[in-house]
Write a protein that binds this DNA or RNA. Structure first.
Lengths: 183, 183
DNA sequence: AAAACATCATTAGCCACCTAACTGTCAGCC
DNA sequence: GGCTGACAGTTAGGTGGCTAATGATGTTTT
């Protein structure tokens, strides 16, 4: 699912050239930014290729994963599934989006909505046996693909990468400052 | 534009735990994979926040950037703009998608379609003055935001990051092998 | 020259994402 | 008891992706 980023990244010398015209352009920052988005886009596309073999989009896969995790976590009692609101929060999408995803998953028989008897505003979403079977059959290939994608990096390099990414991730929200939040 | 990835990444110990159940799960690969997608998602969201102030989606911005670049490159002669096919290729989207993007950009007066006199199948897409003004006014803030996003990394760290990402990027296409390409 | 093929742009229909508005339910308060 | 507000989930409408099919135009082959 392309972010519509430039597919061919500019060479560093071009960035240096462009920096002459745009004093705000920081070549090393720009290069890191472009490579980050480009690489993750490519990785994402590879994963989607695998999921597509199972007729599953990345969004639907995320929901199934969350439900599978919840199914593991219960173990003890007959805890119902997760609510659409919980799923939406965990996945970082709007509730209306989750409604649509659950709609199609339910249509395909992979999940089921169950009313909550205590609070009639709430629903529980649970994996059906078919959904559970599907996700269990996908996981091994999914993990293999992750491993293959990261194979060019040593374990040490992966740690370095995670550390660098984490610095950026933690700091990103600070860049959201609106120009004039009246404060 | 969320990829519907889990918003809260699992802790490393959880990955180790899960690896007991799924022998294919490589914890360090999984961690790197999740952090890569999560971070780029966050960075992308920050950038979209800026673009939204200009009523521009990430897709539309990409098109305007490509056209702006083309406008710079001509310089010498009255070279027409780019064709929709070139734009789609450069942006990595389907041609139909580019048709839709150009539609809305043209509707908003930011680009213009011009017929190609030599080959009547082809169109040229060019920035209008309004489009050019818009993109020129956005670029400085866009560059500032890139710099802010990468501010937590030193120049040295950025080089390291780019190097690691590049290894993954180059290798990613090899992971696309379909199970049985009959070869 | 005519027919077959390739290519460009568009259209139509699907999915996933968003925000905003709506419906039904719960909980508190008069 | 009956308001009022908060909250869960859905619905409605818009945007941007995709694929597949179409129509118009070039190109190649016969």
């Amino acid at each position: 699912m392309p972010l519509l980023l430039l597919k061919d990244l500019p060479r560093y010398e071009c960035l240096l050239e462009a920096a002459k015209e745009f004093p705000d352009l920081d070549p090393s920052a720009c290069e890191a930014y472009l490579n980050l988005l480009r690489t993750s886009d490519e990785v994402h596309a590879v994963i989607e290729g695998l999921l597509a073999e199972y007729q599953i989009s990345s969004g639907r896969f995320g929901v199934l994963m969350l439900l599978g995790r919840a199914a593991n976590a219960r173990a003890c009692g007959p805890v119902g599934g997760s609510t659409p609101a919980e799923l939406a929060d965990a996945a970082g999408v709007a509730r209306a989006t989750m409604t649509g995803l659950v709609d199609t998953l339910e249509r395909d028989g992979l999940v089921r909505r169950e009313p909550n008897l205590e609070d009639r505003r709430m629903m529980s979403v649970v994996l059906t046996p078919a959904g559970n079977t599907l996700i269990r059959s996908m996981l091994p290939k999914h993990f293999q693909l992750m491993a293959a994608l990261m194979q060019p990096l040593t374990v040490e390099e992966r740690k370095t990468l995670v550390g660098l990414l984490h610095k950026v991730l933690r700091h990103a929200p600070d860049c959201n400052r609106r120009p004039s939040p009246s404060a």
